[in-house]
Amino acid sequence: MNTILKNALLPAIALAVSSGAFAAGEHSGGHHGGNAVGEPGKAEDVSRTIEVTMRDNYYEPESVNVEPGETIRFHVKNEGSLVHEFNIGTAEMHEAHQEEMQMMVEHGVLKGDQINYEMMEMDMGNGHSMKHDDPNSVLLEPGDNKEIIWTFTEAADLEFACNVPGHYQAGMYGDIEFE
């Protein structure tokens, strides 16, 4: 892609990505109230840690059980050979986020097994960047691992999902069951 075109396109992506899946969720979290998806949790509230392994293209485990109000530390590691995401949200949020990630792929920010961090970090002006830094999500290259601490404020229809294009459709998602 030539530089001029790239520069012309990037601000559009930056806007799209930074508006993010989390924001989208606040609109579609819907019938359970404004914040059904939950919120970033505090380390001192963590009741337990759930280990999540990413493989190509599925998770182990493929479902988790939580209680309303519970704060969980998800320790997510990517043992596959492709980039994967772990994202907590509703099916609608995931769908919206997939379109953004499709753009990241089309513009070379996201390759099969690599994330172009430099390109993601670039300041696009107006405080926008292409950082994939929503608190409900981690995006990992093969071999990497990260944590998410999340408080499930109330019971809702939630899934954890990989929104790398095609991965969700291939079956890379799991249910979050409320007890």
Partner: peptide, 17 residues
């Protein structure tokens, strides 16, 4: 319906919608 292509000629491919 959207289709997600997962194999071509019997070999797994990175899924494409």
């Amino acid at each position: 319906l959207e289709m997600t292509v997962v194999q071509a000629d019997g070999n797994n491919v990175q899924p494409v919608n």
